[in-house]
């Protein structure tokens, strides 16, 4: 474990960008976790007399059309957006890794059938598919998660399949069979742990995309509903005030989104270096 930490420290020293991204992602997660206790104002309490105030020392990001503190809303929204993204990615990762690994290991008819299904799924414009799913299932947080998970699934299946496929003839897989492991046990205990490092990169990249996706659905009114603080809704509501010069309503949620996506994407590359045991000596 110590070696892992030392290795992580070494990688981070050599990659200032990754370090920054990791710090950013970590800060965002901490803020999201603590958000109910650290918002300076109640994120949903409106105060019309104080509406549309530009950023000041009291209201760092200004107030919106109902006089709610935008900074507090950003913090509260981080919790919801990250939770949606993390659950969606977690779901699709778990399902995709297992399905993809078995396909890659078994090959043959099962593999071809699943492969075609994945192709069909990916042939849809994925965001439109997500919209349709939410519209059909209903405007609830669970459904946003499910929709986001489904449109992420093909990537995990393909990825896991390819990664397992190159390893299934490795000597250590044969050795495992000689050592008394059946096929299921080989996939779950040998192959899956070995493809995890590479999957982790995909997870990090996908987290950013999932955040964007959740926010996009809400922006279109298909996700989380209005009073709830959520970055997508905040952008949507703020957009009406751009023309009248109240830029802060839309700028700050937009920046928060951009930062989140950027951090997770940049972290992806760094993660690969840290988790690959071959890089450790």
């Amino acid at each position: 474990m110590n070696a892992t930490l030392r290795h992580a420290a070494w990688v981070l020293r050599g990659n200032p960008v990754t370090t920054l991204a990791a710090a950013g992602a970590l800060a965002m997660i901490v803020v999201a976790l603590l958000s109910p206790w650290i918002t300076p104002f109640d994120p949903v309490a409106s105060n019309v007399s104080n509406a549309l105030q530009p950023p000041s020392w009291t209201h760092w990001a200004g107030t919106d059309q109902l006089g709610r503190d935008i900074f507090s809303r950003l913090i509260a929204a981080a919790r919801l957006d990250l939770a949606i993204a993390a659950s969606a990615v977690g779901l699709s990762f778990a399902a995709g890794a297992v399905i993809g690994s078995f396909c890659g290991y078994r090959g043959g008819r099962l593999d071809r059938a699943v492969g075609r299904m994945v192709d069909v799924l990916m042939a849809f414009p994925l965001f439109v598919l997500a919209m349709a799913l939410v519209a059909a299932l209903g405007n609830r947080v669970e459904n946003i998660i499910i929709a986001t998970a489904i449109i992420n699934l093909p990537f995990y299946i393909r990825f896991a399949r390819a990664e397992v496929n190159v390893r299934r003839n490795a000597g250590w897989v044969e050795a495992a069979r000689a050592g008394g492991d059946g096929h299921a046990s080989i996939v779950l205990r040998f192959l899956l742990p070995n493809i995890l490092p590479n999957m982790a990169v995909q997870i990090s990249l996908n987290l950013g995309w999932a955040i964007l996706n959740a926010a996009g659905l809400s922006f279109l009114g298909l996700g989380v509903q209005a009073p709830t603080p959520e970055w997508g809704i905040m952008v949507a509501e703020g957009a009406r005030f751009i023309s009248t010069g109240q830029w802060w309503l839309v700028t700050f949620p937009g920046l928060a989104l951009m930062l989140a996506v950027l951090c997770f994407n940049l972290l992806g590359d760094g993660l690969r270096d840290i988790l690959d045991p071959r890089m450790r000596t």
Partner: peptide, 19 residues
């Protein structure tokens, strides 16, 4: 009989699970 018949592979590097 699985335990009775064991095998040693050619490439020692490739035959050990990296994890």
């Amino acid at each position: 009989q699985r335990r009775d018949i064991q095998i040693v592979f050619q490439d020692p590097h490739d035959s050990l699970n990296p994890r």
